[in-house]
């Protein structure tokens, strides 16, 4: 992310890391999560799900900041993010 100045609290604030979980067979391929992900983590996959739609897949999974926007914009209850506790 480009910043016009470094925030004063940048030393103390930790950017959260998230993992995107996709319930592929619920997806209807509307693409809202892909279009509106602020970090552009998702893209359409080449796979088909049971219903014949292309579900999203995470291409830059390390960029996810766990903002949950994909989870709240998804009309299908098909995607959610969880905090990455591995690090």
């Amino acid at each position: 992310m480009k910043l016009w100045r470094i925030p004063l609290d940048s030393q103390t604030v930790q950017t959260p890391k998230g993992i995107v979980h996709i319930l592929e067979d619920r997806c209807k391929g509307c693409g809202y999560c892909i279009e509106f992900c602020p970090k552009k983590v998702l893209q359409f996959s080449n796979r088909f799900n049971k219903k014949g739609y292309h579900p999203p897949e995470a291409m830059n999974e390390g960029d996810c900041v766990n903002c949950h926007f994909c989870e709240i914009i998804c009309p299908e209850f098909a995607i959610y993010s969880m905090e990455d506790t591995r690090a």
């Binding site: 319930l23 619920r26 209807k28 391929g29 509307c30 693409g31 809202y32 219903k51 739609y53 989870e71 709240i72 914009i73 998804c74 009309p75 299908e76 209850f77 098909a78 959610y80």
Partner: peptide, 25 residues
């Protein structure tokens, strides 16, 4: 499971709303 699955009748999902319909959101 999805975090909202406890409030959903999961056996009825996927719902009937069209792809891209705003009602689901």
């Amino acid at each position: 499971p999805h975090p909202l699955d406890d409030l959903l009748r999961v056996d009825r999902i996927p719902h009937i709303w069209c792809p891209g319909c705003g009602i689901g959101t």
